[in-house]
């Protein structure tokens, strides 16, 4: 029993061991607004082995630590700008961390660029060709600036787009100005049929299907070929490719069909299929 108690006390003693508490370093040239690039941040501290990180709201920035007799000095290497805003300076020594709240501010803008956002990115002549544009200016480190002319950060307007379907690539230096114009719905459907004696099928073709701006109707648009004889009504579907859709309808002896092609509510004229 005596041994048991000694072991228990030893275990408690071991578990009671803790690292010595480290005092928070004193920031000598403390400031609430930290300008980038950082020249030197001076701290007084008893301990060595400090690591420092500047945590902006978008990214962590490691800082260089130079130790002195009574503390250390922080600086940043090759960091000339940052996304401005609230940040924290974190000083770490082993498992202990100390936090200092501050605001980041750049000393210069660097290069300035304009941003051009468009919405919707995709337009369809069936609905509207209007596009809402939002313009603004940012500096090299993505901080929003007042536009040079308007003295306000954002500017918006409505632009009418070309009705020709296609992928409109971005203007130079305006990566977000790209947009897509889709073709609209077919305005009319032309149907042609040919009887193929070798295969004993009717080859029925529609196309080219165009929208009201003469764009070729989109690939994959489903065309329903509805044909009937005296007994039954059939529905065969095909997808458009480059404005054309084609189906092969099996022919039977002495059987005639009347056929219409349909895309949504647009219907072709009726054609007769007979061998």
């Amino acid at each position: 029993m005596k041994n048991l108690f000694i072991h228990i006390i030893l275990l408690i003693s071991i578990s009671a061991c803790k690292n010595k508490a480290i005092e928070k370093p004193v920031w000598v040239n403390k400031t609430d607004i930290l300008s980038i690039p950082i020249e030197s941040l001076v701290f007084i501290a008893d301990e060595e082995n400090w690591e420092a990180t500047l945590l902006s709201f978008t990214q962590p920035v490691p800082l260089t630590v130079r130790f002195t007799n009574d503390g250390f000095v922080l600086s940043s290497q090759n960091k000339y700008g940052i996304t401005e805003g609230m940040a924290q300076l974190i000083l770490s020594n082993g498992s202990q961390h100390f936090y200092y709240d501050l605001n980041l501010h750049n000393k210069s803008f660097g290069s300035i660029s304009e941003k051009d956002y468009r919405s919707p990115k995709t337009v369809n002549p069936d609905s509207s060709l209007a596009q809402h544009r939002l313009l603004h200016t940012i500096d090299e480190w993505r901080n929003i600036l007042n536009a040079p002319q308007q003295l306000q950060p954002f500017y918006e307007d409505i632009i009418q787009l070309n009705p020709i379907a296609g992928t409109y690539r971005a203007q130079k230096d305006k990566a977000l100005s790209s947009f897509y114009v889709q073709p609209g719905s077919a305005t009319s459907i032309e149907v042609n049929s040919v009887y193929n004696k070798d295969e004993n099928v009717f080859v029925v073709t529609t196309g080219p299907l165009k929208d009201k701006h003469n764009n070729t109707v989109a690939n994959g648009t489903v065309v329903a070929f509805i044909y009937s004889d005296d007994e039954q009504t059939y529905r065969m579907e095909a997808a458009l490719l480059n404005g054309f859709a084609s189906v092969k309808i099996p022919a039977e002896k002495n059987r005639q069909y009347s056929l219409t092609a349909k895309v949504n509510e647009t219907v072709s004229k009726q054609v007769q299929l007979s061998p």
Partner: peptide, 22 residues
């Protein structure tokens, strides 16, 4: 598939749908 169909009237508001799927 291509369904073809015709409809025959049965009793009690029922109909018989004859379907041929190609």
């Amino acid at each position: 598939g291509t369904p073809g169909y015709s409809v025959n009237v049965l009793e009690n508001n029922n109909v018989l749908i004859n379907t041929k799927v190609y």
